[in-house]
Computed example of a mutant assay.
Amino acid sequence: MRKRVDKASTPATASHLQGAAREVTEEKLLPSPWRRWLKRGLLACCAIFTIEIQYMLPDLTPRVVYSYGIRLPFFADLTQPAELSLNHTVNMYLTPEEGVSVGVWHTVPESQWKEAQGKDLAWYQNSLGNGSPVVIYLHGNGGTRAATHRVGVANLLSALGYHALVLDYRGFADSSGRPTEAGLTTDALYLYQWVKAHCGDSLVVIWGQSIGTGVATNTAVKLLEQGKVVDGVILEAAFTNTQEEAADPMSWLFKKVPSFGFLNTIADNSVFPSDDNLRKMRSSILFLYSEDDTIVPTRMSQQLYQIAQSVQNPDRVKMVSFSGSHGYKHNGLYKDPQTPGIVKMFMQSL
Rank of each mutant, 00 (worst) to 15 (best):
M1D: 02
K7A: 11
A8R: 15
A8W: 02
A8E: 13
T10I: 15
A14G: 04
A21W: 08
E23H: 07
V24D: 09
T25W: 07
E26D: 04
E26T: 02
K28H: 11
L30G: 01
W37G: 09
A47M: 08
A47Y: 01
I48Y: 08
F49P: 00
I51Y: 01
E52T: 00
P58S: 10
L60T: 00
R63N: 00
S67Y: 01
G69T: 00
I70K: 06
R71D: 15
P73G: 14
Q80G: 03
Q80Y: 13
A82W: 07
A82T: 05
E83N: 14
S85K: 12
L86K: 05
H88A: 14
V90N: 08
L94R: 04
L94P: 03
S101V: 10
G103W: 03
V104M: 05
P109F: 14
Q112W: 13
D120Q: 14
D120M: 13
Y124H: 13
Q125A: 12
Q125G: 04
L128C: 10
P133E: 13
H139G: 08
G143K: 02
R145S: 10
R150K: 12
V153G: 02
N155G: 08
L157N: 06
L157R: 06
L167A: 08
F172P: 00
D174E: 11
S175W: 05
R178H: 02
T180P: 00
A182V: 11
G183Q: 05
T186Q: 05
D187H: 06
Q193I: 10
V195I: 15
V205Q: 07
V205T: 13
G212R: 00
G212P: 00
T213R: 00
A220G: 12
K222R: 15
L223Y: 05
L224D: 04
E225K: 15
I234K: 04
L235P: 05
A237L: 00
A238E: 08
E244F: 11
A247R: 07
A247K: 05
K256Y: 02
N264F: 12
N264L: 07
F272G: 01
S274W: 00
D276M: 10
R282T: 11
S283C: 11
L286D: 01
L286H: 03
D292W: 02
I295A: 10
M300E: 14
Q302H: 03
Q309D: 01
Q312C: 04
N313H: 07
R316C: 06
G324C: 06
S325T: 11
H330T: 03
G332P: 02
Y334C: 03
Y334L: 03
D336C: 09
Q338V: 03
T339P: 01
T339S: 03
I342G: 09
K344Q: 14
K344Y: 11
L350R: 07
